[in-house]
Design a protein around this nucleic acid. Structure first.
Length: 310
DNA sequence: GGGTGTTTATGATCTA
DNA sequence: TAGATCATAAACACCC
């Protein structure tokens, strides 16, 4: 209900936390990762409320990015000029929200660091890379695609419904070339890993193989209906350093009732575009990371174990 | 200098 | 009611 004196509901503060808003922005991006400035942009474009008092909420948003383990920082490659890093969702954070609702988290996402110190000591330069492939050790915990959620119900405020998304897109843009990433980063890739990927994410494995072979991937995997063309970055944003795996939830039938404040972007409402895969994106399932010594915060997503803390 | 990232602190609100 | 979650503010450091 619009407040008296307000022109529309959209002028009111959205019922989403900064964590939710940030997660929406990241999920909506083609690569499942965004620089801070793009997260700002996404929020301001969709929520007029946040076009004011930018200093206040942007400070809060940065605080949330740093403070919450559900966000991981991915450094730019040397050939990616620009300020700041890319931000992505931790692979295991998909279970944070009750029924997928982004109104309030049911439990806080927390990364255990028991193994982190050991790993850091053994492979200091690779810990950030491990953030990108940190889910490898938990692959078997990922439910088969389509069976991952505890129920088929998705709250109307769920991210998929909010932004008209299709989680199938996550497969291509986020979690596909795990083995490839690991291999490229110098990690030994267990032979069974490929099998795990293939069995758990048959769509992902097929797309990964196609991408690795330079074959354009079918439009079925277009992220959130965003034309695959969008995978080609603008001049100011080239390919991110490492794709990040996002936990899957099943695609849902369209929901007609959306919060009036939420305007689904036209691009997200369109059906997946025909494949016009950016060659660079398709041919770069994994790219190198600089072996820098990560700070404590940078490595927060690097641990190979994570839990949802009640 | 401005944007970005980290950390600490405090108070409000929600939930078990 | 205690603990968890969230919002906000502020200080500081780093980097482009």
């Amino acid at each position: 209900m619009p407040r008296p004196g307000k022109s529309s509901y959209s002028d009111q503060k959205p019922p989403y936390s900064y964590i939710s808003l940030t997660a929406m922005a990241i999920q909506h991006s083609a690569e499942k990762m965004l620089p801070l400035s793009d997260i700002y942009k996404f929020i301001m474009e969709r929520f007029p409320y946040y076009r004011e008092h930018t200093q206040r909420w942007q400070n809060s948003l940065r605080h949330n990015l740093s403070f919450n383990d559900c966000f991981i920082k991915i450094p730019r490659r040397p050939d990616q000029p620009g300020k700041g890093s890319f931000w992505a969702l931790h692979p295991d954070c998909g279970d944070m929200f009750e029924n997928g609702s982004f109104l309030r988290r049911r439990k806080r996402f927390k990364v255990l660091r028991a193994d982190h110190a050991h790993l850091h000591a053994a492979h200091p330069g690779k810990m950030q890379a491990a953030a990108a492939v940190g889910s490898v050790g938990r692959l078997s915990q990922f439910p088969p695609y389509g069976l991952g959620s505890t129920s088929g119900f998705k709250h109307p405020f769920a991210i998929e419904n909010i932004i008209g998304g299709d989680y199938k897109g996550v497969l291509q843009a986020g979690g596909l070339p795990l083995a490839s990433v690991m291999h490229h980063l110098g990690y030994p890739v267990p032979s069974q890993l490929g099998n795990v990927v293939s069995s758990v994410w048959p769509h992902a494995a097929a797309a990964a193989a196609a991408a690795a072979a330079g074959v354009p991937v079918g439009s079925e995997y277009g992220a959130f209906g965003v034309p695959v063309k969008a995978l080609c970055h603008s001049a100011s944003q080239s390919l991110p350093a490492v794709p990040v795996l996002i936990k899957l939830t099943p695609a849902l039938p369209p929901v007609t009732a959306l919060p009036p404040a939420l305007t689904v972007p036209a691009a997200a409402q369109q059906p997946p575009a025909q494949s016009t895969v950016c060659p660079a994106a398709a041919a770069s399932p994994a790219v190198s990371l600089q072996p820098t010594a990560p700070s404590a915060a940078e490595s927060k997503g690097s641990a190979l174990h994570s839990v949802l803390v009640h």
